[in-house]
Design a protein around this nucleic acid. Structure first.
Lengths: 348, 348
DNA sequence: GAGGTTGATGTAACTGGTTACATGTGTCAA
DNA sequence: TTGACACATGTAACCAGTTACATCAACCTC
């Protein structure tokens, strides 16, 4: 399995000319280009003897068919592009992992580009993805640069918007209702008796998922008093937010984080300050990362089915590409997961 | 920015025929294909009036140049493929993030494929990457299926092996010395007085990085007594391992984890069991994830420069593709990061 | 033995761009 | 006025495959 330099076959003199093509192989095997093409694509249609000869020629000439030439005929490049804000949040990594895996079932590969939540970068990278031949695009959320919409329309490009549910949107969405997810969380905390709740969320600029999550809170926030803390979506952001919360004048009995990464950061910071979760403060997240289940205490959260979202997205874009028919939006239900980081609270 | 269905321009009757091509545009604009091509690639070489007409035709016909046709001439597809074991470990996500970012500077996109540490899957996915036209390949480690080596050779494909340092390997490596990384960790713990150390590591099967890390320990393990615990590389694996360690007959004073994910899992489990880190047990990792710095206590670890590795890999493969010259291996130094999870120990 | 069928193979026209080279026009200097 | 030269544009070959259709032999059947 392990291969060092010396074992590399000498290829001096073989490499002098450029890559062999179909014609070269045909000539070497004494057959026509059509026959070589058949050996490659429908070996059954070629007599064993001829096939043998052609295969030998392919080997000696080290022939590798050109993907581009193939694509020009089939009109298919067999890959799609995904634009995600970042890879540094495990939530997107999980999504992409499922997406990539499921795309494989449709013989599609995945090109990944990160946007850092900047619509301009997103539009620009979408352009490159189209330029290199992506057959479809997967984006996050429904707020985009007009240039992106324009691109998608001009190219008649199958494109799916994920991490969001908006049945009327001009692209089919595959995702969950972000507002519902945080509403579920808030309802739970309110049901537990919490009235003063700190909400930790990521930047609102250019992030419709975060905005929707906050909207979900504001709508069902009748009986509770919410204090909002904006921070960067990262463990460190969670730590920061926790410090701010603890430094704020009026205390809270629970902290609701719009992402689990934030909640984990908060949890670490609370541990650092020797504040017990859930005895001194309840903590709840939204996402349900792998780490959330195993943290101590286990993080009560709202499970967002990102793996299923990846699979559904793969299926949707693949079917769109195959059948040319725009798929229906897919709504995935978030689900409350109660673990140890929350407890009921009675005022006073 | 937000676009709903109704705003979609009607394209009934426009779409009846397939995508327009260069010839269609040329005809519509009353010019030759060469002129249209020039408008696209060298607008300065075309008179403003003609350019105007051609651009109008492009717009009305919704012409989008075919990536494949372009690639067939230039011989360039402008993307490379990366094969990583998984996206679920933040260490690979960080690497890919840096890789993707830096590749952008060279106008290269990134196709991602996951191998789950299975050489057969790796070889198969490498094949698809080549089939769709990847100009280069990035793999993890140096143990691969012969089919992969064969593919790389047959295609004269630039390929870089990462997360490893092996100057004699038949592919240039960009990475760190895994054995050195764990040796650094062990030296540190030994220097702190620890003599009985539990080592938590991932599966050895098909993972040369893990094997190398263990080798690093075994080589410098003269004065210490190591107990090995193999588990799955995930938070949950770390929790499992911690349980095993605590259940084992002879106690240890420190736990050394070959990956930070494992260490975080261990940390959570120890917290669950109310075992204080570092007072009751020292804990050390290798990787230095974002979470490691902010955990409580902060995780003492060995920083592996995966972001720099991503950048160096991008630079290496890009230069190989451009210049056709195999780049030199790059060795990146791991670095000890002392945080709060370790403390000196005196026996008795 | 004529006619029909099957199987293997070749010819050449496609795919959709790029580009070397040819052509034609206009400007300027000699 | 002519030659030199720049500039704009067109023609057609080219890239490396796929594939419709033609060809031809072998076999089978009536």
């Amino acid at each position: 399995m392990l291969k060092m330099w010396k074992s590399l076959p000498l290829m001096t003199g073989v490499q002098n000319k450029k890559r062999a093509n179909l014609r070269d192989v045909a000539k070497a095997a004494g057959v026509s280009v059509a026959t070589v093409s058949r050996v490659l694509n429908a070996p059954g249609a070629v007599s064993p003897a001829t096939r043998e000869r052609v295969e030998a020629a392919i080997r000696t000439l080290r022939f590798v068919p050109s993907a581009a030439a193939r694509a020009i005929n089939s009109g298919r490049t067999r890959f799609v592009g995904a634009l995600v804000p970042t890879l540094d949040n495990a939530i997107f990594a999980s999504f992409l992992a499922a997406l990539e895996h499921k795309l494989g079932e449709y013989q599609l590969s995945l090109v990944v580009a990160t946007t850092h939540n900047d619509p301009a970068i997103e539009a620009e990278k979408a352009k490159t993805l189209v330029d290199i031949g992506a057959e479809g695009l997967i984006v996050s959320g429904i707020t985009h640069d007009p240039a992106l919409d324009d691109l998608i329309e001009r190219c008649h490009l199958p494109a799916i918007a994920t991490s969001f549910h908006a049945p009327d949107y001009y692209l089919p969405t595959v995702g969950y209702d972000n507002a519902a997810a945080t509403a579920i969380a808030l309802d739970f905390l309110a049901g537990q008796g919490h009235r003063d709740i700190a909400v930790v969320h990521g930047p609102l600029a250019n992030n419709d998922r975060t905005r929707a999550r906050l909207d979900g809170l504001k709508q069902s926030a009748s009986a509770v008093d919410l204090r909002f803390f904006e921070t960067e979506i990262a463990i460190s952001g969670g730590c920061q937010a926790a410090k701010s919360i603890l430094a704020a004048p009026d205390p809270v009995s629970a902290i609701l984080c719009c992402s689990d990464v934030l909640a984990l950061g908060v949890l670490f910071e609370l541990q650092r300050k020797a504040i017990r979760v859930p005895d001194d403060l309840s903590l709840m997240g939204v996402d349900d990362l792998a780490a959330s289940a195993h943290a101590e205490p286990g993080l009560t959260t709202v499970h967002l089915p990102v793996s299923r979202m990846g699979e559904a997205t793969a299926a949707a874009i693949a079917s769109w590409i195959e059948t040319q028919e725009r798929p229906e939006p897919v709504l995935l239900e978030p689900e409350r997961v109660i673990r140890g980081s929350t407890r009921s609270y009675s005022a006073g």
